[in-house]
Simulated scan of single mutants.
Amino acid sequence: MNKKTIFDPKTFLLDKPNDLISLDKWQKTVNLLAKVFHAPAGFLVQFTPDGFQVTISSQQSSNPYPAGIVIEPEANIFCRKIVETGTALYVPNAPIDPCWDTNPEVHNDGFTSYLGVPVFWPDGTPFGTFCVMDYKQTEYDSSYLELIEQLKDILESDLALIDLYGQMQQMAITDPLSGINNRRGFEALGKQRITLAQRNKAKLGLCYLDVDNFKHINDNYGHKMGDDLIKHIGLILMATVRQSDVIGRLGGDEFVALVLLESQDDLAIIKQRLQLGFASAMNATSLPDYSVSIGAIEVELDASLTTLLDEADKEMLKNKKRLA
């Protein structure tokens, strides 16, 4: 809902290039692999649920597979075997092995030998394979397998860089206590959401939430209980709003939710849903009794986010005074 990822592992990298990855460096690595192995073709292949895409292809006239081609996920190809097992695969003479009788690389394109190793994302899930193929039978010794493992480390280090950068970016926009966007994250995502609404002529609502008598809770039950309440509010917000909505903690006990409105009554319904969520969840926790004041306004798409937050805050304070 609010988490931004640098790269989606289910998306082909060539369809959404990332500035943190030097495809030129990857190209040089694949070219070097093919050159050292005296192989007519070398590849970096990415796997997603949509199939196997050649991300990088060695730049040789003998290589029949250009970068960008996609092979269906059920095809009986060498790379599929590696992704399924998570281990290296060396086939020196594929035509004599019946398990490759339906392999199009062997029987359509004439390849005989294959050597490949798995490439992993930092979390251990498969990115794809790094491999060489030859039209003739080969007899690689263990040093060749060691070499291809060393070269693929270069590729995995770039994938690790993406992951690390993503974690750092997420930390910069996430409130560590509630687990939702901090002010910076909410403002950045909120402005994007408003721009998208302007483009799509959609309607948005803004809810401004404030815990009533939060200081009293801290003073009488301790700051740990106050922290637990902040975490609790974050969880309720995440469970209540929709995937298209943007939520955040502005600081202290103040929270906001920028929500998509699909009907005239949506804003009132969402406000009621939040209140019911707090009430029902409170009964299932050891937290002290608490209440939340909510100000809800329909968003004027040409107004600044700062102005909108100020208006929603004022609406919340009116409601708080009525309950006092």
Rank of each mutant, 00 (worst) to 15 (best):
E105L: 14
G116E: 08
W121Q: 02
T112E: 11
G124N: 07
G116V: 01
D101P: 00
F111S: 06
G110W: 01
D109S: 12
V106K: 03
E105C: 13
D109K: 13
P122T: 07
P122Y: 08
G116F: 08
I96T: 15
S113C: 14
F120Y: 12
H107P: 09
V117A: 01
P98I: 09
P118K: 00
F120G: 01
T102G: 13
Y114G: 04
G110P: 08
P118T: 05
D97I: 03
G116H: 00
W121P: 00
D101G: 09
Y114S: 04
H107C: 05
V106E: 11
T102L: 15
V117I: 03
W100H: 14
G110H: 04
P126Q: 04
C99W: 03
N108Q: 15
E105P: 00
F111E: 09
D123Y: 10
D97Y: 04
D123C: 12
W121F: 15
G116S: 07
P98W: 08
E105Q: 14
P104G: 13
L115M: 15
F120C: 01
F111K: 02
P98K: 09
V117M: 06
G124W: 02
V106D: 12
D101F: 09
L115W: 05
T112G: 01
E105R: 03
E105K: 02
F111C: 06
T102K: 12
V106C: 11
N103D: 14
D101M: 11
T125K: 01
T125Y: 09
D109L: 14
D97T: 00
H107M: 06
V117W: 07
T102A: 15
V119M: 06
G124A: 05
T102C: 08
P126K: 01
F120M: 08
G116W: 04
C99A: 14
Y114M: 08
D123I: 05
V119Y: 06
G124F: 09
T125V: 00
P122F: 01
C99N: 12
W100A: 10
Y114V: 04
N108L: 13
F111L: 10
G124R: 00
P122D: 11
D109E: 13
L115K: 00
P122N: 04
P104R: 11
I96Q: 15
D97K: 11
I96G: 07
V119Q: 07
W100K: 10
C99G: 06
E105F: 13
P126N: 01
G110Y: 02
P126E: 10
N108F: 00
F111G: 04
V119F: 05
Y114F: 14
V117G: 02
G124E: 12
N108E: 14
D123G: 03
P126M: 04
H107T: 12
V117Y: 03
T112V: 15
G110Q: 05
P118F: 03
F120R: 02
T112F: 05
V119W: 08
P122V: 11
G116L: 07
W100Q: 13
V117D: 09
G110F: 05
D123A: 04
T102S: 15
P104K: 12
T125A: 04
V106Q: 08
D123M: 07
